[in-house]
Each structure stands twice: as structure tokens, then as C-alpha cells.
């Protein structure tokens, strides 16, 4: 979040040093770029300062003053776990699906159909998250119960599906799947833009060697789009981590850390927990919620930064684009 401002700030300075003179337009632009870069930094710092000062009373409070009575760490840990778990499920479900949709649109569907499909996927992104929440609660959750039963019976030896199955279906699995559908459009839209940029020349090179369409995609489109796919997935992950309303509505919360995805005792997520608890909280409870928000802020920053790092590495290893 903070790094994109750095190049804009430094690049014009270097140029000015080399050429000596700067045209008024250049100066205006570099000033504006520098200004907006600084503004982003200031906003970011402001948010961080707010979070830290408001969280401070909870961080320093004695353990029994925190809701739950076992201290801040014990309060936040299941929330962090729930947040990461839900977002991970969403990512694992959504990424392959999004790549498949993007490939279908760019490389398989006839032109007119591809356009329609593209619009449709974009429309999914425009649906408010509260609608997804209601839909998840009303439709997906009940529908998931038989599936969860089947999972428990046949794959129950995997801790993820240990059961006992929740009878309402308002489980971590369903929350993750609803989140996956919510982040699907953004991931597939970015992938689509990336795949469509694959140089035609390279695709023809593969086809002329006798590659089938799928082989051509594996040889050119996917390697070419690798860093784009990673960026897209991270964008989706960021959204899944912070998503509030859908999870708050879908997930039935009454438990601590568990890997069981289909049971009725699920940890909440940070964002959903804040939304649900905030209206009824006062005093140190508010500070505790803000402290959990601080943790979410740090997680999101970490995800963004590691995404940048991964993309940079992916770009460096082995291609001269």
C-alpha cells in the first residue's frame, strides 16, 4: 500500500538532476504525484495511529478486564484463526475457478458468448455483500447440510470434515464458499485482463509446434500470466479477509479454534465480530474490538507486502519481459 508512492517520488528527481531544466507541466505533474503519494502515506499513518492509541487501553489492561476474562491474546486468537481460515477456504475455492472462467472467456468461448459471460462475471462484483450474506443464510446454508453429512460420513477421517454436522448449515465451510463467490469476480476479471495480453506471436509459436489449445495455454498463457494470477489472488484474499456482512450473517458463532469446517461451533472472523459486537459494547470492550481491528490491519498489510514480494520474485525468475 505504501510502496507504490516511492517510485513516483524519486523518479522525477533523478530526471531533473540529469536535464537541469524542467518544464512547468512536468513540475506540476511531479508535484501532484509527490503530493498524492504523501497523502496516502499520511492517511495510512493516521489510521495506524488511531488504531494503536484506541487499542492501547486494551493492550495494557489486566487479563480479567477483557471480555471473556482471559486476556487480549486469548480473545483475539480465535478471531484471527477464523479470519484466516475463512479467507483461505475462499481463496482455495475461488482461484482455480476464477482461472478456469478467465481462460474460458479468453480462449475457449466464441466471441459473442465470451462478451456476455464477461459482463455477467462483472455484474457479480456489483452485488452488495449483504445480499450475498442473505443468500448464503437462506439458500446455501440449508443446501449445504446434506453435502456436509456426506463429507462427514465419507471423509470424516480428515479433521476438516470431522463433524458432527451442523443442522443449520451455518458453518465455516459455507462462509468460506460464500466468500469465494464474492471474490470470484475480482480474481477472474484480473486474470482475464492478464490472459488477454498474452502475445499472439507466442501463442502462434506454440500452436505451430503442434500444441493443442490446452498445451498452448500451459506453454504460453499461464506462464505469461503467473504474476498476474498471484496479484489477482492476493486482491481477492485481501477482500476476503476484510469482508464483514456476509460472514456476520452466515456464520453461526459459538466456539474457539477448530479445524472442523462443518460443525456448529465456529470461531468468528475479526471483521464480523466487530460488526456484531460493536453496538452493544462500551468501555474497555470497545478498545478490545479496536485492538482486534489493529490485528486485521496488520494481517492485511502483511498479505499485500508478501504479494508484492512474490510477484517481484515471480517476475525475476526466468523471463525477460
Amino acid at each position: 500500500m505504501s510502496s507504490p508512492s516511492t517510485p513516483t517520488v524519486t523518479a522525477p528527481r533523478k530526471q531533473a538532476g540529469r536535464n537541469g531544466v524542467q518544464r512547468p507541466g512536468d513540475r506540476l505533474f511531479s508535484g501532484a504525484a509527490r503530493g498524492s503519494g504523501l497523502l496516502i502515506l499520511v492517511i495510512l499513518a493516521g489510521v495506524a495511529i488511531f488504531l494503536i492509541t484506541e487499542a492501547w487501553p486494551a493492550i495494557t489492561a489486566p487479563a480479567d478486564a477483557i471480555p471473556g476474562g482471559e486476556g487480549l491474546a486469548a480473545y483475539v486468537a480465535p478471531l484471527v484463526f477464523g479470519t484466516v481460515l475463512a479467507a483461505t477456504i475462499a481463496l482455495v475455492v475461488a482461484t482455480p475457478l476464477a482461472i478456469a472462467i478467465a481462460l474460458f472467456i479468453t480462449h475457449y468461448a466464441p466471441k459473442r458468448m465470451a462478451q456476455g459471460l464477461g459482463y455477467l462475471v462483472d455484474l457479480l462484483a456489483a452485488v452488495p455483500s449483504i445480499i450475498y450474506g442473505l443468500w448464503g443464510f437462506q439458500v446455501v446454508a440449508p443446501a449445504s447440510v446434506p453435502v456436509a453429512r456426506w463429507l462427514e460420513e465419507n471423509l470424516g477421517f480428515i479433521p476438516l470434515f470431522a463433524g458432527p454436522t451442523s443442522s443449520t448449515g451455518r458453518t465455516m465451510l459455507v462462509a468460506g464458499v460464500v466468500l469465494a463467490i464474492m471474490i470470484l469476480p475480482i480474481i477472474s476479471a484480473v486474470c482475464r485482463e492478464v490472459f488477454i495480453q498474452t502475445p499472439r506471436l507466442n501463442q502462434e509459436a506454440a500452436l505451430a509446434l503442434g500444441a493443442t489449445r490446452w498445451e498452448m495455454i500451459r506453454m504460453t498463457v499461464l506462464p505469461f500470466g503467473r504474476s498476474g494470477i498471484i496479484s489477482a489472488a492476493m486482491l481477492g484474499l485481501g477482500r476476503a479477509l476484510g469482508e464483514t456482512m456476509a460472514v456476520a450473517i452466515v456464520l453461526s458463532v459459538s466456539g474457539g479454534i477448530t479445524l472442523n469446517l462443518i460443525g456448529s461451533g465456529n470461531p468468528s472472523t475479526i471483521a464480523a465480530n466487530i460488526a456484531l459486537q460493536f453496538p452493544e459494547s462500551s468501555g474497555i470492550a470497545v478498545n478490545t474490538l479496536i485492538a482486534s481491528g489493529l490485528v486485521l490491519f496488520v494481517i492485511t498489510l502483511a498479505v499485500n507486502m508478501s504479494a508484492r514480494w512474490i510477484v517481484k520474485r515471480a517476475n525475476r525468475s526466468g523471463d525477460g519481459r
Binding site: P199, N202, A205, A206, G210, T220, P223, G320, R321
Partner: peptide, 16 residues
């Protein structure tokens, strides 16, 4: 295409 190879106008090695 496996039997009849082709070389294009612009060099197009696979960049990755």
C-alpha cells in the same frame, strides 16, 4: 503442424 514446421516474421521464442 507437428509435421510441417513454421518460422515467423518476428522472432518469437517463449519468453518464460
Amino acid at each position: 503442424r507437428r509435421q510441417i514446421g513454421m518460422v515467423f516474421q518476428r522472432p518469437n521464442p517463449f519468453p518464460t
